[in-house]
Design a protein around this nucleic acid. Structure first.
Lengths: 199, 199
DNA sequence: TTCATGACATTAACACTGTTAATGTATTTG
DNA sequence: CAAATACATTAACAGTGTTAATGTCATGAA
């Protein structure tokens, strides 16, 4: 019955949206079955009719944050300048976004959610953090600022670097303001781009 | 009374060692006041005579892992080869260590422990992950493979990169075996060293 | 030496957590 | 209309961090 499926989908979304709201405002540590259920307007046990457990629900929240990320890059970066400047701006936008929304970073990358359930793993193209980067990098290739064969290693290197920086910043293992963080990412990007032909 | 202080120090270590044992074997998520206290041979409430809360106790576990790290680098890297090879080996050892002890990485870098209490923050020289790196990098300077003015940016870049890679690997946000992870770190290091004078 | 004060270990309790079993209530099917 | 199924809810269990109250012991002073 396709009607059943639609209703089921809707119910799941009520819980997912509630969980996302809590993650946004209080962080993933504040997500509890009771709180999610109350926000969604149902009893806590109802969640278990739609999700195996809380981690299963949380995994279903990931695509929402993934979508926010891609739309951010699309809006802020693609209409911007060209070449290395665009790459720098993309990294800056990415870094700034997560520095301003540490709960989002904490949830997406610092939370142990166990293995991804197949229906989520399928929806999320595997490398997860690389997609936005390769989008910008292929643009750079089209403009001749980098070579196409450098895309894989560059995207990995930049992805690791930016998210590594955010890890230490968000986690307060490094005592930096947001400005200092952005500067450090810029500096790291300088070192990286020095190795590529000519910026 | 210095005797009191000694006894107090000892009590704290009993709890710290118990917590470390749990972190090693089951991960930081499995640490609970009851379990720590039982392992230490005391009641759970006794912990609160020595630590503000569980995070306070956990912060006091960090130096132990920090020491393991420095002794690892000292043992594996310093007596090794020279120059860029040594740098590569240091990163490899660091990466391999955490890939083999994901609970340690999870605890040190992926766990939100709030702000560090002053007595721990003082003991841990600030940047935390940079120390081992700068040790190796200054050696590289002595051997003429890199310039001294490149140390700050290089150590930051390499630190971000390696820990970023580990973040995605440990967190299963990237589907890699340990060999693939080590290869990716090697690849990233290649790109980085391409930008520095001549390896 | 005796007594009182303090330090500190423990038990009991509170409000929370994830999860499951049992119960109740609709809605759909025969 | 009756039976069966789906599903939302309540109750309960074992666990959590944390605090207050209680008990116990050792150290100081008179």
């Amino acid at each position: 019955m396709t009607n059943k499926e639609l209703q089921r989908q809707r119910m799941m979304e009520y819980f997912i949206n509630a969980a996302v709201e809590i993650i946004d405002n209080e962080g993933v540590a504040a997500v509890s079955a009771r709180k999610v259920a109350e926000l969604a307007g149902y009893s806590y046990a109802t969640i278990y009719n739609y999700f195996r457990d809380i981690n299963h629900l949380l995994w279903h929240c990931v695509p929402e944050y993934f979508n926010r990320l891609t739309s951010l890059v699309r809006a802020d970066v693609l209409p911007g300048p060209t070449g290395a400047r665009k790459l720098r701006q993309a990294c800056r936008a990415y870094t700034k976004f997560f520095a301003e929304h540490p709960y989002s970073f904490q949830f997406m990358f610092m939370t142990d959610l166990g293995d991804a359930p197949p229906e989520v793993a399928d929806a999320l193209s595997q490398p997860l953090f690389l997609n936005s980067l390769t989008t910008v990098l292929t643009q750079c290739v089209a403009e001749g600022t980098i070579r196409v064969e450098d895309i894989p290693s560059l995207s990995i290197l930049i992805g690791f670097t930016v998210n590594g920086a955010l890890l230490f910043h968000v986690n307060r293992r490094m005592d930096t303001t947001m400005e200092q963080l952005l500067d450090q990412v810029d500096l790291a990007l300088d070192s990286i781009l020095k190795g590529v032909d000519r910026l």
